[in-house]
């Protein structure tokens, strides 16, 4: 599988999903015209990553599982993005079986209570442990 590396644009966040270096982050503004089209490949990637890890650990059972941490540091999110981020978080939940520890780091800019609130709401709706942190 290939990694995802997207530069931030005016309306979409920077995304790194790297299954080799185990770096997973989404940063910046998320207000694209078509949030579903933007997030669909990311959601699929997590599905593919889950399959990748399944075959890796099945074929090499001595492989030590690593921690998987998804970092979200968004400064502006439209409601259509929120919906797709939630779908992404549900996919991330499914990685639990293939991680030593699976967690979400939800970072918000200092003073951005609304983004903090978004993290709190999401943390109640998914199984993956959330760490909600001010940047």
């Amino acid at each position: 599988m290939n990694k995802i590396s997207l530069e931030a644009t005016e309306f979409s966040p920077r995304v790194i999903f790297d299954h080799i270096d185990f770096v997973f982050k989404i940063e910046g503004e998320s207000s694209p015209e078509d949030a579903r089209s933007f997030y669909a490949p990311l959601i699929k990637w997590v599905d593919d990553f889950s399959l990748y890890l399944h075959f890796l650990y099945s074929s090499k059972p001595d492989t030590v599982k690593k921690d998987i941490v998804f970092l979200f540091h968004l400064n502006y999110v439209t409601s259509s993005s929120l919906k797709n981020i939630y779908t992404l978080l549900l996919k991330i939940d499914l990685l639990k079986a293939y991680a030593a520890q699976l967690s979400i780091k939800w970072m918000f800019d200092k003073g951005d209570e609304d983004m903090q609130d978004n993290g709190i709401e999401f943390s109640k709706m998914v199984r993956t442990p959330f760490e909600i942190l001010s940047a």
């Binding site: 502006y76 439209t78 200092k110 003073g111 951005d112 609304d114």
Partner: peptide
């Protein structure tokens, strides 16, 4: 004003326009 309030103004306006 607070960062949060400024962002909230953008957000509210954008959501209502959307």
């Amino acid at each position: 004003g607070e960062l949060n309030i400024k962002r909230r103004c953008s957000y509210v306006f954008e959501e209502l326009l959307a």
